[in-house]
């Protein structure tokens, strides 16, 4: 089977985020860039399927700056087979991302698309659901377990929802989005890194795809939230309880 996995280049989660002086984005000097953590989990899941189902091909797709090559290369080193980079200088909103991915899916015809549930930069949690709709495919979001049917024509997916775990069944092709507990991603091995250098990475300028990527969402401004002032310490449990009762009046 063929599995498409999406990979977004994002600042490392430990990054201290500051708004750039022009107010249009964040300060990116000295930022360490990584694969969106949820996408790492998506790659891992695809690789585990590949290990079980012989003949499986895992294809990575990223949309973004040319520098996203680094993250795709890391994914190839983890064990993916080839990569596609749709080069776009403008950051695209989730709907535009979904439209680009739809176009890629139309040519690649994967049996399964695994994505992250959320990009940790825009925190949208949208692209996967949007892509599923554009393709007219079922979706299984926030996956914590994926079981493929024996014929690889369907999947049973356990999902992290409010109040518990829900299991849904979907026919393939489908879109699955990964939640944190789906798996623990592997590190790229040294031989993996060597092999990755020779793997195919195709670059396509976004304009060549003929997809409407015009924004529907305009960012009017970015602000830093007010800082919460804290830091007061209490000396004992008794003091804490008195404060909560008499001062804060919350118990």
């Amino acid at each position: 089977m063929k599995i498409l996995v999406t990979v977004k280049r994002v600042p490392d989660p430990e990054t201290v985020i500051k708004i750039a002086p022009d107010g249009a984005g964040i300060v990116t000097d000295n930022v360490k860039w990584v694969i969106n953590p949820f996408d790492e989990i998506a790659i891992e899941e695809a690789l585990r399927i590949k290990e079980k189902v012989s003949g499986t091909e895992v294809v990575l797709v990223s949309i973004g700056l040319k520098t996203s090559q680094e993250q795709l290369r890391t994914g190839l080193a983890m064990g993916a087979d080839r990569a596609i980079l749709v080069v776009s200088d403008a950051a695209l909103e989730p709907l535009a991302v979904a439209r680009v991915l739809q176009k890629i899916a139309d040519t690649e015809k994967p049996d399964l698309i695994v994505m992250g549930k959320q990009a940790i930069d825009d925190d949208s949690n949208c692209a996967g659901q949007m892509l599923a709709e554009l393709l007219g495919w079922p979706q299984a979001t926030f996956a914590s377990k994926v079981e493929l049917g024996g014929d690889q024509k369907s999947a049973k997916v356990t999902r992290e929802v409010d109040g518990g775990l829900e299991t849904d069944a979907v026919p393939l092709p489908a879109v699955v989005t990964a939640d944190l507990r789906l798996n623990e991603p592997r590190y790229a091995s040294l031989p993996g890194i060597m092999k990755a250098r020779k793997k195919e990475m195709k670059e396509i300028p976004v304009a060549e795809l003929g997809v409407d990527v015009a924004p529907t969402v305009k960012i009017v401004k970015l602000e830093t939230p007010p800082k919460r002032t804290g830091g007061r310490k209490v000396g004992s449990v008794q003091e804490l309880v008195q404060m909560l009762h008499n001062e804060a009046k919350v118990i």
Partner: peptide, 9 residues
């Protein structure tokens, strides 16, 4: 956005 570090309008 960015884990609550930025408020976007």
């Amino acid at each position: 956005m960015w884990a609550g570090n930025v408020i976007a309008t």
